[in-house]
Amino acid sequence: MPWTALFFLIGAMGISALPPLNGFVSEWLTLIALLGGALNLSGGFAKLFFCFCAGALALTSGLAVACFVKAFGITFLAKARSQEAKAAREVSWLMNCGAGFLAILTVLLGLGAGWVLKYLTKVSGCTTGLDVSSMSFSLNNFTLSPLAQSALYLSPLLLTLIFLVVILAVFILLNLVFGKARVQSAPTWDCGYYKLTPRNEYTATAFSKPFRLAFSFFLLPYQKSEKTQDSPYHVKSFVYETGTKKIFSEYLYAPLVKLTFDLGKLMKNIQQGSVHLYLSYIFAALLLLLIFARRF
């Protein structure tokens, strides 16, 4: 699925805040804003708060990159890990249009961030009442500069240009100096173990194992293993299961859902479906309201 993979890769790069895509621009602006806050605010606690926010953001973005390396790498790269994956075929062009449209937007919003932000700044200036005229997001040089006079700027377009020029220059130089690269294809090194099958590959579970262990205080991973033996010396089958507790659904949503249902059950007691009973409720409510109005 070459096209789907390409669009997925662009999306994954965008959400991992990799230059020069849109996620990069927004995260860069956020970090610069936090830095500006830390530098320019006067209160000590405010400074600390901004610094720790930046640290938390950096941790989150690092974890996001890891997550999407896993998502893209395990799904699309290397040998097919299942029969279904092996039989996967490119989807119809109509389906690719949707993903492609979003991927193109990701690229355009990154490269043309200066142009987009020129309008977004006006909106945010209006809603927050701050003076945004010193921010320059100019169209001619495609640079972003939240503070006009300082050396604080970024140009995603220029950055991309540098990337491309360096890649091309390196490629051409290498070909000139050392000649054209002769490339052979050979099986992946298998430690002399002959057949390397997809079962030898790293899986998503294995990939995220360090994270599960390091953050075990929060994720609460569990392991279950089950052996069936037909003799003390021979294991017939072995089942191993691992996973993490669903913290939010178990400790936040489940109690909320239970509370709602319990309250509903309580209310059911006074709702029997009899019109006479409802009329008497209305009468009682009216009485209570009248007494309330008289007294207070």
Binding site: G62, G73, Y202, F207, A214
Partner: peptide
């Protein structure tokens, strides 16, 4: 991850793990 070798996947997994922890420090 691309080479289908277990070592490559192991390296990527560890590298991403370490780098995501180091990034806030930097």
């Amino acid at each position: 991850l691309d080479t289908a070798s277990a070592f490559g996947g192991m390296g990527s997994s560890r590298e991403m793990f370490i780098s995501s922890l180091v990034e806030p420090v930097v």
